[in-house]
Design a protein around this nucleic acid. Structure first.
Lengths: 209, 209, 209, 209
DNA sequence: CATGAATGAGGATTCATTCAT
DNA sequence: AATGAATGAATCCTCATTCAT
């Protein structure tokens, strides 16, 4: 990595981090490029030097967030001294943490995916995001298979598909649970964290032997 | 209902239906009042005669959609000649149908809920929507309890809470499943409907005795 | 006056009174015909049966207000048992009272006057307003002349002109004094009424012998 | 002052001057941002680069106008070779001139004043305007006191209060006199200027010894 | 006589993006 | 490499007024 590349990365991260903060507080739509520029202490045009447009900032952050998840769950899955059940709950926690930091990434992860690689390549980062998504799915699939081998899980379908199903249920539940946290507290006298853990447990029941 | 009220309702529905179509295609934010007016063949100002603002159109549609769900599942749950399992799958189908027609309602149902009634009452329809949501939850809770009585289900927690958990899982899964339908078809060689039914079955497993 | 005319007058006053209230609270520009109609409990179109447009309501009220002034000060001036000085202060009070009730009339009285009678006649009521204005001026002029005859006032110019000058000073001072009432209270520890009376006294000094 | 600041000032003044012209002709409310932009030959959005909103243009002009008054009358009051009476009439002329250029400023000066400094600070320029207003009042008060010392004036109250009273009378009279200039010419066969000077003379009589 | 219904014509403000320097 | 300057294109919403019934 040349010095120039390092500088570039530095600035991109600088900008992206600021954007992440603002997106998380006010949402993507209600965060203007002006705000990002001002808050990150760059001129608005400079933002456009490092990112082609607003969407690219979003995608950059999504890629970053998903990579974090990938690394987070990989580490958990690859660790030797944990039970499969522990691993499962820790994977859930990785997602919960990401939501706490960058809720808007979840909205993006729930969006339509472009299946034609050639189309994806037209938008910078889009294909990378797809790949990381696939990596995550494979990693979880691997975890499920290992669990089955270990006689902890019982899979009724292909691991890759089950992995995807878990992914979608978890994402949906975490997003929903966070949005409705007030409702949950009022109605069930239970904080969001406990509630989510209860749901995670129920979901685990599906494959637990 | 007087003739005048009928006319009013007619126009409101006319406008709302057009909006529903546009919201479903382009999303709420990217649908402008101009578009709705043009497409519904009213002048822009006339739209404002029937709806106070854009949000009211959205809420009108959300209320309508949720009321449809409520009625749909009530009918199913109250019917005498169906097994509890059949009822469950049919409830799922009600949600699936609504998504097909008005996906944006799901986005709204996943949004934060205002818990202070006095605040809800400030925005027309908001409290009605809340009430219908509660009705739906209660109805599903009732269904779960009956299922338990019938020895078909085994509930590990209060029916109302389980009802809510099912609600959020179903909503999340349907939304996610639809957004990712292409992915599902490509990866798992399975159409969206079958896929969703498989997930519904897995979820049923949680409470099935 | 036929019954029909009585009805017409009744409705006009009904509407105008409501408008007066709203104009006084929110100003003319910020009061919409919708509001007037709703508040007066007529349909919006009915308003247009009794008044050609919004401006006519304003003019109707201005005419009414100015006629009240005219009558008020005429009564004072024509009364036998008051000193000229008392009469002066009472005239001032008539204006003060009108401002309290209908501040917006003052704004109108300070507006440009159309001098060509043929032009005035094109807008309903405009010429009537002009005439009442003239009447008021003449009445005050008469008062000043009597005061001079009584050896209470000393006029340095024609009474009609002085009358107009007093009219403009009084109007300006009352309007200004009301708008700045908070400032007056804070800076001079004096309530608006006392302050205005002090100014009226100073102004009286100009002609007092 | 850097070149950039100069440019900024140049554009602000460019825009403000155009607005001033339009405001003077058609009034503030009836002048649209579109008009200002078109007339000043900027794009509408560019206007918003230099002014936050329409109100800020108004306040900018009000501040400018009042500062002009302040400087104008300060210069007059501080000059050594004029009689107090001359100074008085020249001060009146400063106001008359401002009205000729920017009548709408007078309307603003006659509006309610926000007395809570914290509230004023929320709107850019508002507090500055207040301060300049105070400066003007103090300067006139100083003039009155000097006149008293010089044995030319006889003050019956505190100079600051008299200063304010003169201010309000003058503003009111100039505004009224200008609006009614046609009436004055027709009725009294006298041009506006002479008429106003006559009124100024009468007003001077109040404090003249 | 009263009005329900409909609308044309604005109007303020926002913001992502471009481009010359 | 960084940015100051400028803007085109939207977007939501308001309201006085008309007209057929």
């Amino acid at each position: 990595m040349t010095k120039a590349e390092k500088m570039e990365l530095f600035h991109r991260d600088n900008i992206a981090d600021t954007a992440e903060r603002l997106f998380s507080i006010n949402g993507i739509e209600k965060t203007s490029m002006d705000q990002i520029a001002k808050e990150a202490d760059y001129s608005k045009s400079t933002i456009y030097v490092y990112f082609k447009n607003k969407e690219e900032i979003v995608l950059y952050l999504v890629l970053k967030g998903m990579t974090e998840i990938k690394n987070g769950i990989s580490e958990i899955i690859d660790s030797k001294d944990k039970s499969d059940e522990d691993k499962y709950y820790q994977i859930c926690q990785v997602l919960v943490s990401l939501y706490d930091k960058s809720p808007f990434i979840f909205s993006h992860m729930m969006e339509t995916i472009e299946m034609k690689k050639e189309e994806r390549l037209k938008v910078p980062l889009l294909d990378d995001i797809y790949q990381v998504g696939e990596d995550i799915n494979e990693k979880i699939a691997e975890f499920l298979k290992t669990g089955e081998t270990n006689n902890n899980f019982k899979l009724d379908d292909k691991a890759e598909k089950l992995s995807f199903i878990y992914w979608m249920m978890l994402s949906g539940v975490i997003m929903f649970g966070n949005k409705k946290s007030q409702y949950i507290e009022c109605q069930f006298k239970q904080n969001k964290e406990d509630f989510l853990n209860q749901v995670f447990a129920m979901m685990l029941g599906i494959i637990k032997k």
